[in-house]
Design a protein around this nucleic acid. Sequence first.
DNA 1: GACGCATATGTCGTATCTGACATACACTCG
DNA 2: CGAGTGTATGTCAGATACGACATATGCGTC
Lengths: 105, 105
Amino acid sequence: MNKAKENRLKAAGWHVGDASDFLDLTDQEAAFVELKLALADYMRDIRVQHGWTQTHVAHVLGSSQSRVAKMEAADSSVSVDLLVKSLLALGASRKQVGQVIARAA
Amino acid sequence: MNKAKENRLKAAGWHVGDASDFLDLTDQEAAFVELKLALADYMRDIRVQHGWTQTHVAHVLGSSQSRVAKMEAADSSVSVDLLVKSLLALGASRKQVGQVIARAA
DNA sequence: GACGCATATGTCGTATCTGACATACACTCG
DNA sequence: CGAGTGTATGTCAGATACGACATATGCGTC
């Protein structure tokens, strides 16, 4: 199983490596998880491009380093809400956020 | 105060018509609320174009009529998470969702 | 007016998300 | 090899978002 698929499954709240390893996400679920991953990747891009640490970003957002790490990993415990709010807080525009979401997988 | 602004404030969880009626959302807050409203409007568009009732949509989503009404109103109790998931469940593509978000206000 | 249907608003118990903390891992520099 | 720095993972109490229900409003039709 490739990395991207594995992340997708983890983000959806499933375990990889179980006895029954074949899981099919519905199209909507897959689309939703991919959308989340796109936002997460974008967030990491912004941070890295500015040369910021996760700790620094956490302070800017009024959150913690661990949550920033989870956001960038598109962890199942972070919502699209939080990702979008955070991106806007980091300076991304509504338009940019939309473009990241719209970009075909 | 015009209707759009009023909705924006309500969605942000504030009361309109108070003694101190002048509130300024930060740019990020405003962008976030507008983004939410765009999704909410898009959801209503989809429903109306198909000639569906809120009750019907609620069944499709496995939710209730009241929540659908709140979604379309971009109520402060509905998350972008729920809006995006619902839009995907109603047949919108990730690309369409992104375009709705990206469209300039 | 009274009924039926669609939508809006308010509240509630429960489930999920959040920030915080602890801790583990990875890597670099002495 | 430590020690320092940055990132990842696990857990928890408190916050908030969820579906559900009751009820209100609007609006045709009789």
